[in-house]
């Protein structure tokens, strides 16, 4: 466990440094919009709507980033020379994957927070029928299952397929496979559920996904080690 936390500290620092320009730009944009007087916002709305559209697009990108970034974190640099630095640490591939999964959570939350802050700031430009991107969770979806799905389950499926495909351009087929299999597993686990367990369908699905997550992590680590990634 100490080994994992040691690696996690370095991995977190590494990813933060790699993303620092992106984060600074976001922070700067938020500050600029926050600091703009209302009169300036009104002027922009009427005379330079492309600026609000641009900020809106950036918000949408942050929102989609929240959905897809966890998988990106896991997939970074498996086939690149810089992987050597991770291999040199001596930590097992399994623990490297677990570290990536753990870092998914704050990274994705940061993106989600940014989309919420941005949405609040966009109120300054609101007028009449103008709509803008706003990421929300509905009650029906359930925060915890959705969070687990997006932060853990789908990224694990994605990583497994990505390493199994074994080529740098395998991101897109891996994504497609992950996003196809994820709802299928939910459906299949409920189709084959014995009638007696029907009231606990959600719990059973969750357990099936947890078991599959562990299997995907172990499978991905085994593929990476066997192929020398």
């Amino acid at each position: 466990m100490t080994e994992l936390f040691k690696y996690l500290r370095w991995d977190a620092k590494r990813r933060l440094y790699a993303a620092r320009i992106f984060l600074l730009i976001w922070f700067a944009l938020d500050l600029i919009v926050f600091a703009l007087p209302q009169a300036a916002c009104r002027w922009i709305t009427f005379h330079a709507p492309f600026l609000t559209a641009l900020f809106n697009i950036l918000l949408a990108l942050a929102g989609f980033g929240f959905l897809f970034y966890p998988a990106f974190i896991l997939s970074a640099s498996w086939f690149r020379p810089r992987r050597t630095m991770e291999q040199l640490t001596g930590i097992s591939t399994k623990k490297q994957i677990v570290s990536g999964l753990l870092l998914n959570i704050p990274s994705a939350l940061l993106l989600f927070l940014q989309s919420q802050i941005g949405s609040a700031l966009m109120q300054k430009f609101a007028r009449g029928g103008m709509s803008y991107f706003h990421l929300t969770f509905s009650e029906a979806a359930g925060f915890l299952p959705t969070f687990f799905n997006l932060m853990v389950f789908i990224p694990c499926l994605y990583l497994f397929f990505y390493l199994a495909i074994g080529k740098p351009g395998g991101n897109i087929p891996a994504f497609l496979l992950a996003y196809i299999f994820s709802p299928d597993i939910t459906v299949l686990s409920q189709i084959f559920l014995p009638a007696s367990l029907a009231p606990a369908a959600d719990l059973v699905t969750a357990l099936v996904k947890i078991v599959l997550t562990v299997a995907m992590v172990l499978g991905a680590a085994r593929i990476a080690e066997k192929r020398g990634y």
Binding site: K6, W10, Y17, A18, R20, P81, R82, T84, M85, L88
Partner: peptide, 25 residues
């Protein structure tokens, strides 16, 4: 001791950060 090559080190690192990496691990 495996000596890293220039392609294996991310560009945002510097000598100090690399030294911290070695000290850490």
């Amino acid at each position: 001791s495996y000596c890293l090559t220039s392609e294996q080190i991310p560009g945002w690192m510097n000598a100090r950060k690399l030294m911290a990496y070695y000290s850490h691990f």
